[in-house]
Protein backbone atom coordinates (compact mmCIF):
# COMPACT_ATOMS: atom_id res chain seq x y z
CA UNK A 1 0.00 0.00 0.00
CA UNK A 2 1.58 3.28 -1.00
CA UNK A 3 -1.36 5.67 -0.53
CA UNK A 4 -2.35 6.36 3.07
CA UNK A 5 -4.54 8.78 4.99
CA UNK A 6 -1.90 9.88 7.50
CA UNK A 7 1.85 9.75 7.81
CA UNK A 8 1.26 7.75 11.00
CA UNK A 9 0.00 4.88 8.82
CA UNK A 10 3.55 4.63 7.47
CA UNK A 11 4.99 3.58 10.85
CA UNK A 12 6.22 -0.02 10.80
CA UNK A 13 6.33 -2.64 8.04
CA UNK A 14 9.96 -1.75 7.45
CA UNK A 15 12.09 -3.61 4.89
CA UNK A 16 14.68 -6.33 5.52
CA UNK A 17 17.91 -6.46 3.48
CA UNK A 18 20.38 -9.32 3.06
CA UNK A 19 23.83 -8.10 4.15
CA UNK A 20 25.52 -11.52 4.11
CA UNK A 21 28.33 -9.98 2.06
CA UNK A 22 29.63 -8.72 5.44
CA UNK A 23 29.55 -12.17 7.06
CA UNK A 24 32.93 -13.62 8.06
CA UNK A 25 31.44 -17.12 7.96
CA UNK A 26 30.03 -18.69 4.76
CA UNK A 27 27.59 -20.69 6.88
CA UNK A 28 26.09 -17.57 8.45
CA UNK A 29 23.70 -15.31 6.58
CA UNK A 30 22.92 -11.88 8.03
CA UNK A 31 19.77 -9.82 7.47
CA UNK A 32 19.10 -6.29 8.66
CA UNK A 33 15.70 -4.71 9.35
CA UNK A 34 15.92 -1.03 8.44
CA UNK A 35 13.89 1.16 10.78
CA UNK A 36 15.24 4.44 9.37
CA UNK A 37 12.36 4.59 6.87
CA UNK A 38 9.78 5.32 9.56
CA UNK A 39 8.32 8.85 9.20
CA UNK A 40 10.30 10.24 12.17
CA UNK A 41 13.40 8.43 10.95
CA UNK A 42 13.75 5.71 13.57
CA UNK A 43 12.41 2.58 15.24
CA UNK A 44 11.18 4.84 18.04
CA UNK A 45 8.17 5.97 15.99
CA UNK A 46 6.67 2.59 16.84
CA UNK A 47 6.81 3.07 20.60
CA UNK A 48 5.96 6.76 20.39
CA UNK A 49 2.70 5.90 18.63
CA UNK A 50 1.98 3.01 21.00
CA UNK A 51 2.64 5.04 24.17
CA UNK A 52 0.55 8.00 23.01
CA UNK A 53 -2.37 5.83 21.88
CA UNK A 54 -2.30 3.85 25.13
CA UNK A 55 -2.30 7.04 27.22
CA UNK A 56 -5.20 8.39 25.14
CA UNK A 57 -7.14 5.14 25.55
CA UNK A 58 -6.47 5.08 29.30
CA UNK A 59 -7.76 8.66 29.66
CA UNK A 60 -4.33 9.96 30.72
CA UNK A 61 -3.80 12.09 27.63
CA UNK A 62 -6.12 14.44 25.77
CA UNK A 63 -5.59 17.30 23.31
CA UNK A 64 -3.93 20.17 25.12
CA UNK A 65 -2.32 18.06 27.85
CA UNK A 66 1.47 18.34 27.76
CA UNK A 67 3.63 15.26 27.19
CA UNK A 68 6.96 14.96 29.07
CA UNK A 69 9.73 12.52 28.11
CA UNK A 70 13.49 12.09 28.58
CA UNK A 71 15.10 11.19 25.26
CA UNK A 72 18.49 11.48 23.59
CA UNK A 73 16.62 12.09 20.36
CA UNK A 74 14.73 9.40 18.52
CA UNK A 75 11.87 8.79 20.96
CA UNK A 76 11.50 12.53 21.36
CA UNK A 77 11.32 13.08 17.60
CA UNK A 78 8.70 10.35 17.15
CA UNK A 79 6.64 11.70 20.05
CA UNK A 80 6.92 15.31 18.86
CA UNK A 81 5.77 14.36 15.36
CA UNK A 82 2.69 12.54 16.65
CA UNK A 83 2.00 15.08 19.42
CA UNK A 84 1.95 17.82 16.77
CA UNK A 85 -0.72 15.97 14.79
CA UNK A 86 -2.80 15.11 17.85
CA UNK A 87 -2.67 18.53 19.50
CA UNK A 88 -0.45 17.75 22.50
CA UNK A 89 2.24 20.24 23.56
CA UNK A 90 5.46 18.40 24.43
CA UNK A 91 8.63 18.82 26.50
CA UNK A 92 11.68 16.65 25.75
CA UNK A 93 14.54 16.38 28.26
CA UNK A 94 17.77 15.65 26.40
CA UNK A 95 21.51 15.40 27.21
CA UNK A 96 23.38 18.37 25.72
CA UNK A 97 25.89 16.16 23.87
CA UNK A 98 23.38 14.92 21.30
CA UNK A 99 23.66 16.18 17.73
CA UNK A 100 22.34 19.51 16.54
CA UNK A 101 20.20 17.74 13.94
CA UNK A 102 18.20 16.01 16.65
CA UNK A 103 17.56 19.25 18.51
CA UNK A 104 16.48 20.97 15.27
CA UNK A 105 14.08 18.15 14.39
CA UNK A 106 12.50 18.40 17.83
CA UNK A 107 12.12 22.16 17.52
CA UNK A 108 10.74 21.81 13.98
CA UNK A 109 7.92 19.67 15.38
CA UNK A 110 7.30 22.27 18.08
CA UNK A 111 8.81 20.52 21.10
CA UNK A 112 10.21 22.44 24.07
CA UNK A 113 13.70 21.07 24.72
CA UNK A 114 15.22 20.99 28.21
CA UNK A 115 18.96 20.18 28.15
CA UNK A 116 20.85 18.25 30.83
CA UNK A 117 24.66 17.94 31.21
CA UNK A 118 26.09 15.49 28.66
CA UNK A 119 28.50 14.00 31.19
CA UNK A 120 25.50 12.69 33.14
CA UNK A 121 24.40 10.69 30.08
CA UNK A 122 20.80 9.56 29.75
CA UNK A 123 20.72 9.02 33.54
CA UNK A 124 20.81 12.81 33.95
CA UNK A 125 17.93 13.30 31.48
CA UNK A 126 15.84 10.62 33.19
CA UNK A 127 16.46 12.19 36.61
CA UNK A 128 15.53 15.68 35.39
CA UNK A 129 12.37 14.38 33.70
CA UNK A 130 11.33 12.62 36.92
CA UNK A 131 11.85 15.87 38.81
CA UNK A 132 9.76 17.81 36.24
CA UNK A 133 7.04 15.15 36.45
CA UNK A 134 6.87 15.65 40.23
CA UNK A 135 6.67 19.42 39.79
CA UNK A 136 4.04 19.20 37.04
CA UNK A 137 1.46 16.53 37.85
CA UNK A 138 -0.72 18.14 35.17
CA UNK A 139 1.69 16.83 32.49
CA UNK A 140 1.59 13.29 31.07
CA UNK A 141 4.92 11.55 31.77
CA UNK A 142 5.06 8.63 29.32
CA UNK A 143 8.43 7.27 30.60
CA UNK A 144 9.60 4.86 27.90
CA UNK A 145 11.91 3.02 30.35
CA UNK A 146 8.96 1.89 32.43
CA UNK A 147 6.07 1.97 29.94
CA UNK A 148 4.91 -1.48 28.88
CA UNK A 149 3.52 -0.06 25.63
CA UNK A 150 7.21 0.18 24.62
CA UNK A 151 8.05 -3.57 24.49
CA UNK A 152 4.42 -4.35 23.62
CA UNK A 153 4.69 -2.32 20.38
CA UNK A 154 7.58 -4.55 19.34
CA UNK A 155 5.81 -7.73 20.44
CA UNK A 156 2.74 -6.76 18.42
CA UNK A 157 4.47 -5.56 15.24
CA UNK A 158 8.27 -5.58 14.94
CA UNK A 159 8.55 -9.22 16.04
CA UNK A 160 5.80 -10.58 13.73
CA UNK A 161 7.20 -8.58 10.80
CA UNK A 162 10.68 -9.99 11.38
CA UNK A 163 9.52 -13.60 11.63
CA UNK A 164 7.33 -13.12 8.54
CA UNK A 165 10.26 -11.78 6.49
CA UNK A 166 13.04 -13.98 7.95
CA UNK A 167 11.23 -17.22 8.87
CA UNK A 168 14.52 -19.15 8.92
CA UNK A 169 15.96 -16.89 11.68
CA UNK A 170 18.25 -18.67 14.17
CA UNK A 171 19.83 -15.68 15.97
CA UNK A 172 18.52 -12.22 16.82
CA UNK A 173 20.87 -9.35 17.70
CA UNK A 174 19.74 -5.92 18.84
CA UNK A 175 21.03 -2.88 20.68
CA UNK A 176 20.12 -2.21 24.27
CA UNK A 177 18.81 1.25 25.18
CA UNK A 178 15.49 1.18 26.97
CA UNK A 179 15.52 -2.57 26.14
CA UNK A 180 12.09 -2.26 24.46
CA UNK A 181 13.13 -3.75 21.09
CA UNK A 182 14.97 -6.62 22.76
CA UNK A 183 12.07 -7.44 25.08
CA UNK A 184 9.27 -7.14 22.54
CA UNK A 185 10.91 -8.84 19.57
CA UNK A 186 12.81 -11.30 21.78
CA UNK A 187 9.71 -12.40 23.68
CA UNK A 188 7.74 -12.75 20.43
CA UNK A 189 10.47 -14.95 18.98
CA UNK A 190 10.65 -17.04 22.19
CA UNK A 191 6.87 -17.57 22.01
CA UNK A 192 6.80 -18.47 18.32
CA UNK A 193 10.24 -19.90 17.53
CA UNK A 194 11.77 -20.89 20.88
CA UNK A 195 15.12 -22.08 19.51
CA UNK A 196 16.14 -18.61 18.33
CA UNK A 197 19.14 -17.32 20.28
CA UNK A 198 18.82 -13.76 21.52
CA UNK A 199 21.76 -11.37 21.95
CA UNK A 200 22.06 -7.73 22.94
CA UNK A 201 24.84 -5.24 22.37
CA UNK A 202 25.38 -1.96 24.17
CA UNK A 203 27.89 0.88 24.07
CA UNK A 204 30.28 1.20 27.05
CA UNK A 205 28.05 4.07 28.18
CA UNK A 206 28.98 3.77 31.83
CA UNK A 207 32.54 4.88 30.97
CA UNK A 208 31.27 8.25 29.77
CA UNK A 209 29.03 9.02 32.70
CA UNK A 210 31.42 11.03 34.84
CA UNK A 211 28.55 12.55 36.79
CA UNK A 212 27.92 9.22 38.47
CA UNK A 213 28.81 9.52 42.14
CA UNK A 214 28.54 5.90 43.05
CA UNK A 215 27.59 2.63 41.41
CA UNK A 216 24.44 2.77 43.52
CA UNK A 217 23.27 5.49 41.13
CA UNK A 218 23.07 2.84 38.43
CA UNK A 219 19.99 2.31 36.32
CA UNK A 220 18.22 -0.74 34.97
CA UNK A 221 15.06 0.04 32.94
CA UNK A 222 11.99 -1.11 34.91
CA UNK A 223 10.57 -2.75 31.75
CA UNK A 224 13.73 -4.92 31.51
CA UNK A 225 12.97 -6.33 34.95
CA UNK A 226 9.18 -6.62 34.39
CA UNK A 227 9.59 -8.49 31.10
CA UNK A 228 12.32 -10.80 32.42
CA UNK A 229 15.09 -9.44 30.20
CA UNK A 230 17.87 -11.33 31.97
CA UNK A 231 16.15 -14.68 31.34
CA UNK A 232 15.46 -13.81 27.72
CA UNK A 233 19.07 -13.14 26.79
CA UNK A 234 21.58 -15.74 25.64
CA UNK A 235 24.37 -13.20 25.70
CA UNK A 236 25.21 -9.53 25.98
CA UNK A 237 28.29 -7.67 24.77
CA UNK A 238 29.69 -4.18 24.77
CA UNK A 239 30.75 -2.83 21.40
CA UNK A 240 33.31 -0.05 21.56
CA UNK A 241 32.97 3.18 19.56
CA UNK A 242 35.74 2.37 17.09
CA UNK A 243 34.19 -0.97 16.16
CA UNK A 244 30.74 0.65 15.85
CA UNK A 245 32.09 3.31 13.50
CA UNK A 246 33.99 0.72 11.44
CA UNK A 247 30.88 -1.41 10.87
CA UNK A 248 28.72 1.65 10.21
CA UNK A 249 31.16 2.56 7.44
CA UNK A 250 31.32 -1.01 6.10
CA UNK A 251 27.53 -1.03 5.82
CA UNK A 252 27.73 2.08 3.66
CA UNK A 253 30.71 0.99 1.55
CA UNK A 254 29.82 -2.69 1.03
CA UNK A 255 26.00 -2.64 1.17
CA UNK A 256 25.09 0.96 0.34
CA UNK A 257 23.23 1.26 3.65
CA UNK A 258 23.62 4.65 5.35
CA UNK A 259 22.84 4.00 9.00
CA UNK A 260 23.35 5.52 12.44
CA UNK A 261 26.20 4.42 14.69
CA UNK A 262 24.09 2.16 16.89
CA UNK A 263 23.39 0.11 13.74
CA UNK A 264 27.15 -0.41 13.40
CA UNK A 265 27.18 -1.76 16.98
CA UNK A 266 24.37 -4.21 16.19
CA UNK A 267 26.15 -5.41 13.05
CA UNK A 268 29.37 -5.84 15.06
CA UNK A 269 27.37 -8.06 17.42
CA UNK A 270 26.06 -10.12 14.50
CA UNK A 271 29.59 -10.53 13.11
CA UNK A 272 30.75 -11.85 16.51
CA UNK A 273 27.89 -14.37 16.56
CA UNK A 274 28.85 -15.50 13.03
CA UNK A 275 32.53 -15.86 14.01
CA UNK A 276 31.71 -17.98 17.05
CA UNK A 277 29.38 -20.47 15.37
CA UNK A 278 30.49 -24.09 15.83
CA UNK A 279 32.08 -25.42 12.63
CA UNK A 280 29.48 -26.65 10.17
CA UNK A 281 26.51 -25.02 11.93
CA UNK A 282 24.33 -22.93 9.64
CA UNK A 283 22.82 -19.72 10.95
CA UNK A 284 20.51 -16.94 9.85
CA UNK A 285 21.19 -13.87 11.95
CA UNK A 286 18.80 -10.91 12.01
CA UNK A 287 19.71 -7.49 13.36
CA UNK A 288 17.74 -4.29 13.83
CA UNK A 289 18.99 -1.00 12.40
CA UNK A 290 17.38 1.60 14.68
CA UNK A 291 17.89 4.59 12.39
CA UNK A 292 19.60 6.09 9.35
CA UNK A 293 22.71 8.23 9.43
CA UNK A 294 21.21 11.62 8.57
CA UNK A 295 21.01 12.89 12.14
CA UNK A 296 24.72 12.20 12.75
CA UNK A 297 26.37 13.75 9.68
CA UNK A 298 27.48 16.84 11.59
CA UNK A 299 29.58 14.67 13.92
CA UNK A 300 31.98 13.90 11.06
CA UNK A 301 32.20 10.21 11.89
CA UNK A 302 31.44 8.96 8.37
CA UNK A 303 34.61 10.24 6.71
CA UNK A 304 38.22 10.90 7.60
CA UNK A 305 40.62 9.04 9.89
CA UNK A 306 39.01 6.22 11.84
CA UNK A 307 40.85 7.15 15.05
CA UNK A 308 39.45 10.68 14.95
CA UNK A 309 35.97 9.38 14.17
CA UNK A 310 36.14 6.89 17.05
CA UNK A 311 37.22 9.70 19.40
CA UNK A 312 34.17 11.72 18.31
CA UNK A 313 31.89 8.72 18.86
CA UNK A 314 33.29 8.49 22.41
CA UNK A 315 32.03 11.95 23.29
CA UNK A 316 28.84 12.42 21.27
CA UNK A 317 25.67 10.63 22.27
CA UNK A 318 25.04 8.59 19.12
CA UNK A 319 22.91 5.82 20.59
Amino acid sequence: MTRVDSVLDLIGNTPVVDISVLSPNPDARIFIKLEGGNPGGSVKDRIAKAMIEKAERDGELWPGRRILEPSSGNTGIGLALIARLRGHPITIVMPDNTTNERRQLLEMYGADVVLTPGNEGSNGAVRKAQQLADEHPEWAFLYQYGNEANPQAHYDATGPELLRDVPEITHFVTGLGTSGTLLGVGTYLRDHKPDVKIYAVEPPAGEKVEGLRSLDDGFIPPVFVKWGGADLLDGKRIVRPRESVEWTRRLASDCGIFAGVSTGSAVAGAIKVAERLPAGEHATIAVISPDGGWKYISTGIYTGEIEAAAAIAETVNTW
Partner: peptide
Amino acid sequence: LDKAATAVADGAELTILPAVAGGA
Protein backbone atom coordinates in the same frame (compact mmCIF):
# COMPACT_ATOMS: atom_id res chain seq x y z
CA LEU B 1 28.64 -16.70 30.84
CA ASP B 2 29.48 -18.43 34.13
CA LYS B 3 28.90 -15.36 36.32
CA ALA B 4 31.54 -15.06 39.09
CA ALA B 5 33.00 -18.44 38.07
CA THR B 6 33.80 -17.17 34.55
CA ALA B 7 37.45 -17.88 33.81
CA VAL B 8 39.71 -14.97 32.87
CA ALA B 9 42.91 -16.06 31.13
CA ASP B 10 46.24 -14.28 30.93
CA GLY B 11 46.05 -11.46 28.40
CA ALA B 12 42.30 -11.07 28.74
CA GLU B 13 40.61 -7.83 29.69
CA LEU B 14 38.06 -7.50 32.47
CA THR B 15 35.91 -4.35 32.28
CA ILE B 16 33.84 -3.07 35.17
CA LEU B 17 31.01 -0.71 34.19
CA PRO B 18 28.11 0.83 36.05
CA ALA B 19 24.64 0.07 34.64
CA VAL B 20 23.32 3.34 33.23
CA ALA B 21 20.29 4.41 31.27
CA GLY B 22 20.67 3.73 27.56
CA GLY B 23 20.07 6.41 25.03
CA ALA B 24 16.79 6.51 23.20
